[in-house]
C-alpha cells in the first residue's frame, strides 16, 4: 500500500511501477563478490553473504574483512521514498542496451537526506538501471545496476561510485617513510572511488 502523497499526479507512473516491483521482494539471500576500485586501496576481491528482509536493515557476513558501501545497496529505494517528493521527466537514455526513462527526484520535505536524485528506469521491465543521488552530507554517489535476465528483480552487478577524500597519514606511520608530493596531494584531495558487487541471489522470496 503506497502512502497517500505517493499517489499524487506529480510522481511519474514509471517510478511507481518500479517501486511496486521492488516492493514485491519480501526477502532474499545472495552471495557477493566485492571488488574495490579506490586509488589508494589495494584489496583483492572478497566474498560475502548478503541477507535482505523487507523492513529490516540488510545484513552482511564474511570470513574476511570486507568493505560494505553505505550507499547504493538500498534496493527498495527506501531513502528516496521516505518523504514526499516530486519527479521531473528528463527524457530517455539507453542504459546497458535497455530504453530507460530519466527522472529527477526532488524532495519536498526538508527532512529528506538528499537534495536531488536522478533515476534511470527501464520502461519495459521497470527495473532501476541507474541512480545518481546528491546527499546533503555524504556528497554525490552514482549506482549502475545490470541484470542477468531482463525480468530479474535483483541485479546481477551493482557498481557504486562515490567521492572519497585522500588518506592523510603522518610520515613514518606504520613503516617506511613515504615520499609526499604536496602539490599532487592538494589536487587529489577528493577522488572518486568505486566498488563493484557481483551478486548471485540464492534465495528470493516474493510477496504473495
Amino acid at each position: 500500500m503506497l502512502p497517500q502523497w505517493m499517489c499524487a499526479q506529480d510522481i511519474d507512473p514509471v517510478l511507481l511501477q518500479a517501486k511496486a516491483r521492488l516492493d514485491s521482494v519480501q526477502s532474499f539471500e545472495a552471495g557477493l563478490k566485492l571488488s574495490v576500485d579506490i586509488s589508494f586501496v589495494n584489496m583483492s576481491p572478497k566474498q560475502a553473504t548478503m541477507t535482505y528482509t523487507k523492513g529490516e536493515p540488510t545484513t552482511f557476513s564474511s570470513e574476511d574483512f570486507v568493505l560494505i558501501p553505505k550507499r547504493g545497496l538500498d534496493f527498495s529505494l527506501s531513502e528516496i521514498f521516505e518523504y514526499p517528493f516530486m519527479t521531473v521527466d528528463r527524457g530517455y537514455e539507453v542504459i546497458f542496451g535497455r530504453p530507460c526513462k530519466l527522472l529527477n527526484i526532488i524532495p519536498l520535505d526538508k527532512r529528506a537526506d538528499f537534495s536531488i536524485a536522478t533515476l534511470g528506469v527501464d520502461t519495459v521491465n521497470y527495473s532501476v538501471m541507474k541512480s545518481e543521488i546528491s546527499t546533503k552530507k555524504d556528497g554525490t554517489y552514482e549506482v549502475l545496476l545490470s541484470y542477468g535476465q531482463s525480468n530479474d528483480i535483483i541485479p546481477g552487478r551493482v557498481e557504486v561510485s562515490f567521492e572519497i577524500e585522500r588518506i592523510r597519514i603522518p610520515l613514518q606511520y606504520m613503516g617506511k617513510e613515504i615520499e609526499v608530493d604536496k602539490s599532487a596531494m592538494k589536487m587529489e584531495e577528493v577522488k572518486r572511488g568505486r566498488i563493484i558487487l557481483d551478486i548471485e541471489p540464492a534465495l528470493v522470496e516474493l510477496v504473495k
Partner: peptide
C-alpha cells in the same frame, strides 16, 4: 565515511 566494515 563511505563503508561499513565487516570483520576486524
Amino acid at each position: 565515511e563511505s563503508f561499513y566494515f565487516q570483520g576486524t
